Amino acid sequence: MGLALSLPVLATTPLDTHLEAQQAQAALQERIDAADDESRAMLEELRRLEGETRRLRLENQRLAPGLETRAERLDRREAALEALADTRQALPELQQALIERLAAWVDADLPFLVEQRRGRVEALRASLTDPDLDDAERLERILAAWRAELDYGREMDAWRGTLDAGEARREVDFLRLGRVGLYYLTPDGRQGGVWLAEPGRWDALDDAQRRQVRQGLRMARDQRAPELLRLPVSQPLEDDA
């Protein structure tokens, strides 16, 4: 008669199966919940970025005109700086040309206050080599001299000075009507003349013209009310036709 051995047999009961299913379901739910949390976080971040994008777009639209204006200003400033560099390079030559043109104008103009005006030109020439002056100061002096010359054309002036007539020198009263007429009258009123620019000489005035010069002298010295003067002119009158 043989022996019979009894071994334990492991069997899966319905309860064990149910527990495993619950655990698997719980693990799956955790993964789903984690995925949902991550999705919600990504969705919130997406909404935040969309809001930031809209805000930046509106801000850009608001700032765009000002940025365009600033860009235009920068372009103009860059162009101005380039032009300034070119101007600074050409400035010494320009200053020299302005002085020489002024000197030529004085030499060709009516002969009034000649020493004073030529002295002004020589002072400008000396300023070109003055190390204590910068370009701005030199240019300002040149422009001031030009303004003074231009003002002569709008002024009525009278002064006493010396008339050089050949070898003779005499003290006379000068009358200048802008750049139209230059006249002189001796203190006794017996002699007078008008400068004729074209031939470059003085021409004698008659009695009536000398009386007109005397009136003009009084007007220039604020001793008489302004009135019309009938005098020959120094500069030739040109017909526009």
Score class of each variant (00 low, 15 high):
48 R>M: 14
27 A>V: 07
108 A>C: 01
44 E>D: 14
63 L>D: 02
31 R>A: 12
99 I>A: 04
52 E>C: 06
129 T>L: 06
73 R>M: 15
37 D>W: 01
128 L>G: 11
47 R>H: 10
55 R>E: 06
101 R>E: 15
123 A>S: 08
77 R>T: 12
69 T>Q: 15
74 L>T: 08
116 Q>P: 04
56 L>V: 05
94 L>Y: 08
123 A>R: 14
116 Q>A: 12
92 P>D: 11
110 L>N: 00
96 Q>Y: 04
117 R>M: 05
55 R>Q: 05
32 I>E: 06
67 L>H: 12
40 R>Y: 01
134 D>S: 08
44 E>Y: 08
87 T>M: 14
78 E>D: 14
132 D>P: 00
131 P>F: 04
89 Q>Y: 09
105 W>Y: 13
64 A>P: 00
47 R>Q: 04
114 V>R: 09
93 E>Q: 15
90 A>E: 15
119 G>D: 10
131 P>V: 06
39 S>R: 09
31 R>P: 03
129 T>F: 03
97 A>P: 00
77 R>S: 12
77 R>H: 13
26 A>K: 00
72 E>N: 10
91 L>C: 04
115 E>Q: 11
57 R>F: 03
105 W>A: 15
112 F>T: 12
128 L>K: 08
51 G>C: 00
29 Q>P: 02
80 A>G: 05
46 L>E: 00
101 R>S: 13
44 E>P: 03
79 A>R: 12
129 T>W: 03
40 R>G: 04
103 A>F: 01
94 L>N: 10
57 R>A: 08
46 L>R: 00
92 P>G: 10
92 P>T: 13
77 R>G: 03
104 A>L: 11
27 A>R: 06
100 E>W: 02
38 E>S: 06
54 R>A: 05
112 F>P: 06
132 D>E: 08
114 V>N: 02
39 S>L: 06
115 E>T: 11
62 R>S: 12
27 A>E: 07
57 R>G: 08
48 R>L: 13
37 D>F: 02
74 L>M: 07
124 L>S: 07
26 A>D: 00
110 L>R: 03
